[in-house]
Design a protein around this nucleic acid. Sequence first.
DNA 1: TTGTATGCGTTATCAG
DNA 2: CTGATAACGCATACAA
Lengths: 320, 320
Amino acid sequence: MADVAREAGVALGTVSRVVNGQQVGEEFRAKVEEAIQRLGYQYNNSGRTLRTGSTNTIAFIIPNTINPYFALLVHHVNIALEKRNCKMLLCFTEYDTNRETEFIQMARQNQVDGIIALTYNPGLTIPADVPFVTIDRFFSTSVPCIASDNFGGGWLAAHKLKELGCTNVAFMRIGSSLTNEPSKRKDGFVSACVELGLSFEVIALEDGAPYAEFEKFLTDHMENGKLAFDGLFTGTDMLAWMIIQTLKKMGLRVPEDVQVIGFDGIRTFGILDYVVSTIVQPVQEIAEACVSTVLSKHLSTVPSLICLPVKYAFGGTTKE
Amino acid sequence: MADVAREAGVALGTVSRVVNGQQVGEEFRAKVEEAIQRLGYQYNNSGRTLRTGSTNTIAFIIPNTINPYFALLVHHVNIALEKRNCKMLLCFTEYDTNRETEFIQMARQNQVDGIIALTYNPGLTIPADVPFVTIDRFFSTSVPCIASDNFGGGWLAAHKLKELGCTNVAFMRIGSSLTNEPSKRKDGFVSACVELGLSFEVIALEDGAPYAEFEKFLTDHMENGKLAFDGLFTGTDMLAWMIIQTLKKMGLRVPEDVQVIGFDGIRTFGILDYVVSTIVQPVQEIAEACVSTVLSKHLSTVPSLICLPVKYAFGGTTKE
DNA sequence: TTGTATGCGTTATCAG
DNA sequence: CTGATAACGCATACAA
């Protein structure tokens, strides 16, 4: 920048003003821009970061990008950031609680302007000196949490199964023992079953439990080649898909014998049909809410829990 | 850092040396570490970046993360980077050629230590002042290109179909008109068909062509309820999957009537079964090669085209 | 081995 | 509206 100033015969500050599009006399601007061209000057962001302490970068902490739901989230968060001229520093935890902690540290050292995190560490401490927004997990009223309406989604699934003619249903899930927003999927489902007088069962496996326990659960509920349930609601689309494979192996037809509703809204190859009938999370809205919240000037005044509406979508595993 | 030095009663340089794990007298180290604790000092990376010009960050430019193959790539590139204490600046182009150019500019302004890019802009200019590695696309001998053995993959697909009893095959693809490494999938396939005396056809649609052209191609090759082909090889797994849906709608059975082999190696939900029988790209090795190449000290001495071996995997759309 | 001093590229303040 | 200058936090060459 000093070189440019010398080349253009102006002061350093003037070059800075030109680069930042501030008010500068036309002749000066022309001289500076010409010098920039001539020298092939490249703006260096690290100087600005050092001086201002801001990077226009948000760290996004998430388990991985292989899980299609996370991949979708990454995509929409990035779009929302780009819209606001922000960059993304992506951190994959692989569900490793140490990594979660280290990434927060690393992000701060890199002067990120905020952190969006989807974590599972039960004892995670949230730094107070950087805007922090979590997905699917409520920490405290001072840490905004964005989630879809998980309770409403469970509720909707039960109503949908009832509407589609089911009389005996079950909720199936496997996952971390951590109580978080997605835990409410079960609560909403159970609540609606009770309300509807729908007979139901629940099987919730801890993370790491063998999948065979689901198979056992299902075979234990078989009588004369018929399953005791005519409707299943699962914690995720992936589990729904796996359960459906098992049902088929057991000689049951989906959706004729058993209807299955998953949760998330995963599509084949990310853009084609829904993999299973499902409760669709509003990923784009979630991403948008995360970004606008984490960048909001007055973090303390934003709501501490934002639940966004879900919807049901047909994916071939329910009766149309 | 100056505060820490004052608090510990040592010089600024000593604090720096402690922080960087350099040789420092035990008593000094202890004093400094205690002061760091007491003050809750946080290392600030922007100072280092300004001073050294390096960020330990690599920009990864890719269309999106919704496509499962790209998601896999992002995942493995990140792992390879993390192994080397590097961060990832992720840039989604959405196939927008302007974005591709802008991101390269942006990455340089952010002092990244290198760029890995999977792009489609035919006229993209590669900056000379930052290590640059491309995926699937050869620019010049001075820009290392990493790809899987696309030619070998096409060749393998033809051999596999022959081995599985096919006598009339076709290659189907749709995509950008850009000639890149994946274009060789067709070349390898055709070459093997000729070599094997296997009767074949090719349909290659330009990006943006309606999918219906594939349907027309297939129905045009129907005679008395039988398809003229008993084996299909597609440019990607996604196209294979779409074609299979079409075949089923036409009353054809896969793999009994027609066997289909895709390309990429996509699994359901990223980790379960292969979606279709496929030629699997060695994603992890590709990612590893990209990272080690872009970080290599002597970029000029690395090979300019690295092709990594593919393999065939069964995914239910071929006879076992 | 430790202390001192300089400069990396930028923004922002203040004086002209 | 422009010019001069200090300061951001760190690494490092050099002096002690």
